[in-house]
């Protein structure tokens, strides 16, 4: 129980840090970007919208920094992330449309990548020394290619040239969004290539990590005992893998951050309507309220994913339930 409490505490602090960074950044940066922004906007949007933007930065009234901070927090709790300058809508309503796409794409990719990488790593670790080891440099290469570059190449070869996959966007222009099979299957079809790209970029990390842990575990006595017990090979491997997977899960927090970072750019390459594409547009247009809103949402989502990983770890390692967590 203690571990879960500690982790919850950590995530609460992390969320608070993210929120505070968000608040402080525009104020610490040289050149007072908020004032510049508001000056630029005057005349373009309604006074009410300017007030909402000012509020979302915590700037509503003539106040000191601390008071501004609390105004900012209050607004945040009410879901006011400000108004997008370029899109003319509230940041929260924009995010409500794009976040599901990103969560779906990255969620599916991460699950597939984790599963494939873990299986491959298990086998590579078990058969270490065999010819399969020659896969490792190739895997390393794929790990080192930037996500967006691999996605571009994939798009080019399998989308534009070979036409194996539909590309650009999350679904065809010809289908109407809705909860029906036509639409859902179309979404799956359009999602295939982006998912494959993200999996190819991220699978090597899981695979190599799992391989190293498997090799370490196979050196443990309990795996030798599994052999001594005359268990079938599959069960012996399971004994090792069951323990080797724990560090992988413990490292999910680092990995999810990296995968999300990479996957946001894959969205850009494929024109996928998620927050990645949105973030890039916002950056190019200096749409600060939108940038900040996206950053917050991404951070909170990653924290939620971390929490799920922690629960999984907690469930898989009985030692965390009785020992003092470190």
């Amino acid at each position: 129980m203690r571990l879960v409490t500690r982790r919850l505490g950590l995530y609460a602090v992390t969320a608070w840090v993210a929120v505070t960074v968000n608040f402080l950044l525009p104020r610490l940066m040289p050149g007072n970007p908020i004032q510049t922004l508001i000056g630029k906007l005057t005349g373009q949007v309604t006074p009410g919208e300017i007030r909402a933007i000012r509020l979302s930065f915590g700037l509503g009234f003539h106040q000191g920094l601390i008071a501004q901070y609390f105004t900012y927090l209050t607004q945040l709790l009410h879901g006011n992330l400000g108004v997008s300058i370029t899109l003319g809508a509230t940041v929260s309503s924009i995010l409500r449309q794009s976040v599901p796409w990103t969560v779906g794409l990255i969620g599916v990719s991460t699950i597939v990548s984790f599963a494939v990488g873990t299986f491959a790593g298990t086998w590579l670790g078990w058969t270490r020394g065999s010819r399969l080891d020659s896969l490792i440099p190739t895997a390393t290469f794929f790990q080192a290619v930037p996500y967006f570059f691999l996605a571009t190449v994939m798009l080019l070869i399998f989308g534009s040239d070979l036409h194996w996959f539909p590309v650009l966007g999350a679904y065809s222009q010809n289908v109407t969004p809705g909860w029906n099979w036509t639409f859902v299957s179309n979404v799956i079809r359009y999602g295939e290539l982006p998912v494959i790209s993200i999996v190819l970029s991220s699978v090597a990390g899981w695979m190599l990590g799992m391989r190293n842990m498997m090799i370490t575990m196979v050196g443990e006595d309990f795996v030798l005992m599994a052999v001594a017990k005359g268990l079938p090979r599959r069960r012996v491997i399971m004994h090792a893998a069951r323990n080797a997977i724990l560090p992988s899960i413990a490292n999910l927090s680092l990995a999810i951050g990296l995968v999300v970072s990479g996957a946001l750019l894959v969205e850009l390459v494929f024109n996928y309507p998620g927050v990645g594409d949105l973030l890039l547009q916002a950056v190019l247009n200096e749409d600060y309220p939108l940038i900040q809103g996206i950053f917050l949402v991404i951070t909170l989502t990653v924290l939620a994913a971390n929490l799920i990983a922690d629960v999984a770890y907690f469930a898989l390692d009985p030692r965390t339930r009785t020992e003092v967590a470190t």
Partner: peptide, 15 residues
């Protein structure tokens, strides 16, 4: 570790 690196980088860099 928990804060995703690239979005944070982008936010800092944007300013």
């Amino acid at each position: 570790l928990a804060i995703p690196g690239l979005p944070l980088l982008i936010v800092i860099d944007a300013y």
